[in-house]
Amino acid sequence: MEVAISVITIFMILGAIYAIHARDILSAVIAGGIVGYSLVICFLLLQAPDLAIVQIVVETITLIIMVAVVLDSSRVEAYSRFDRRAWITAGTAVVILLVLFWFLRAASSHLAPFGESSLRMADAYINGAVERTGSVNLVTGVVFDFRGYDTLGEATVLVTAVLGVLTILRINGKKKLT
């Protein structure tokens, strides 16, 4: 399973790199879809069907909306010339990458082997959760009972995002429309 996930991760990285460098924005959007759908397969392999369902549906709808947006606007990407200021940006990116890799190496030596949980909170959630919440699906039990505040926050973020979209996109007032 580790081999399969590694191969899929390489595909995701290739897709993301192509999405950055594609000259046609429509193909960049579709290459971005590779990342999302590969993530679905990763979730299924890691036995997380809850996340896989959400990811596959959200990815499809996002792809539809992005394709609609690209078809209505320009398909050609605007390139900037590679001048002296770009060298500073590239140098900063390389330095940040090196620091992040150093942190990753330092942190990965403390991690438990793949597949073994090292969280103390997880045991408290899993043991006896069915009796305490009455829900057979542990994820729903955690999302709506133990972590209710988080879920309320997520739902509020969604409403706020919709309000933002309506406010930004609306050109005429609502009274003029009707």
Binding site: P49, D50, I53, V54, V57, V58, I61, G134, S135, V136, N137, V139, T140, G141, V143, E154
Partner: peptide, 13 residues
């Protein structure tokens, strides 16, 4: 949602 994988977020989408 409380029996099988899924729930409010997945079903709503």
């Amino acid at each position: 949602g409380h029996l099988t994988p899924g729930g409010g977020f997945a079903g709503g989408v």
